[in-house]
């Protein structure tokens, strides 16, 4: 059983936080992730810096460019996971574009991921149709695999992608790339409603969520809210203090709902 889906199936609000491994340096990224966890992030989405991140907006692009410029190498991801795992129990899902994984070799990557202590992978540019090998290996190793659904996905695809996922299925809130948005699309609510018709797989909504209010809203209809860009912007502008403040603000969205 997936620890992630167990957590998400509890009757409570959940915040998933994205942060890039190695941003701005390896040490600082570990420190930042631990602060996010301390402040209320219950599942960590650890991003792997990649040269061509087509799902990401300028803030995440910039952060991953900084990490790479500071010497981040792909295998440093495992080091970051190990160091986090020494200090925290929260599930860690690695978010990576597909090519770096293929380059190391899918099996080797998956085994190292597991050994380091991560729980699975979120794959933004891998659809289940192309994921036969990954589905087999993740089943064998007991790793979570998170595929995406989007407002544009057909009902057939929503069902297929949800059933192919393990842990949760990632609902892309709106038609667009990562970044903050003032108002969340009604599309997110509709997409989750369509998911509920066809699957019990838990879902977390991401893309565009940047405030405590949005975290609360999303948790009203989904199992969790995913925030990325807002954490990175807070860190880029205010350092660790800025990040801690942003985490506190977002975590208020969790408390409000349980009142």
């Amino acid at each position: 059983m997936s620890k992630v889906s167990e957590l998400l199936n509890q009757d409570k609000s959940t915040l998933i936080g994205y942060f890039p491994a190695g941003y701005p340096t390896i040490d600082e990224s570990v420190e930042a992730c631990l602060e996010m966890i301390k402040g209320g992030v219950e599942i960590l989405e650890l991003g792997i810096p990649y040269s061509d991140p087509i799902m990401d907006g300028p803030v995440i692009q910039k952060a991953t460019e900084v990490a790479r410029a500071n010497g981040f190498r792909l295998r440093d991801s495992f080091e970051v996971i190990r160091r986090l795992r020494e200090q925290t129990e929260v599930p860690i899902l690695v978010m990576s574009y597909w090519n770096p994984i293929l380059r190391i070799g899918l099996r080797e990557f998956a085994e190292e991921l597991k050994t380091a202590g991560a729980n699975g992978l979120i794959t933004p540019d891998l659809i289940p149709d192309e994921a036969k090998d990954w589905i087999e290996i993740s089943e064998e190793l007991g790793l979570d695999r998170v595929f995406l659904i989007a407002p544009s996905s057909s009902d057939v695809r929503i069902k297929r992608n949800a059933e192919a996922s393990r842990g949760f299925v990632y609902t892309v809130s709106t038609m667009g790339i990562t970044g903050e948005r003032g108002e969340l699309d009604a599309l997110a609510r509709d997409t989750v409603a369509r998911l509920r018709e066809v699957s019990n797989t838990p879902t977390a909504v991401g893309v565009g969520i940047s405030t405590g209010t949005q975290v609360r809203e999303v948790n009203e209809y989904a199992n969790a809210a995913i925030v990325g860009t807002a954490f990175i912007r807070a860190y880029a502008e205010g350092g660790l203090t800025g990040l801690i403040e942003k985490t506190q603000e977002l975590a208020k969205g969790l408390q409000l709902q349980s009142d």
Binding site: A150, S152, S154
Partner: peptide, 14 residues
């Protein structure tokens, strides 16, 4: 070949 793109684009490709 194949389709290694984010899910939001699949409907348009179809």
């Amino acid at each position: 070949g194949g389709r290694f793109v984010p899910e939001p684009l699949i409907a348009a490709l179809d």
